[in-house]
């Protein structure tokens, strides 16, 4: 696991987002055990208190749960994961729209692009 950290914004949030994206794209399966706080701290070379905070927030999203003395596990609630995947997609979609509108693209043009994509891919 690799973490790219931008020290100019809160680090716990970046660790949290990394896990959310990885759970959303299925890099961690439902019910799978996540690495411990200390393991993540060592890998990322980040303060364990910061990692603990990221894990707390991850639990709050409902994507993971901590079992006492056992560790933190990805939720088995597939609806929660599907929802998170949609949320993440919507986030990326919004960012994409902002960028492409800056280029002066209209909705019709964006739709035309999207339909072209459908034919050439898969």
């Amino acid at each position: 696991m690799r973490f790219k950290i931008d020290e100019g914004s809160p680090i716990y949030r970046q660790i949290l987002e990394t896990f959310i994206r990885q759970i959303a794209c299925g890099q961690w399966s439902p019910g799978e055990k996540l690495p411990s706080i200390r393991e993540v701290a060592e890998m990322a070379r980040v303060n364990p208190n910061t990692i603990a905070r990221a894990f707390q927030e991850l639990e709050r999203t409902g994507l993971a749960e901590t079992k006492r003395g056992e560790g933190t596990f990805v939720t088995t609630d597939s609806n929660a994961i599907a929802e998170c995947r949609e949320d993440t997609a919507r986030q990326i979609w919004t960012e994409f729209l902002e960028k492409i509108r800056e280029l002066g693209f209209t909705n019709a043009e964006i739709k035309r692009l999207a339909s072209g994509l459908k034919e050439e891919s898969v």
Partner: peptide, 14 residues
């Protein structure tokens, strides 16, 4: 450190 990052938008190095 995290609160300073949040409030200033800067790293500790900056």
């Amino acid at each position: 450190a995290e609160a300073l990052r949040d409030s200033t938008g800067h790293s500790m190095e900056e």
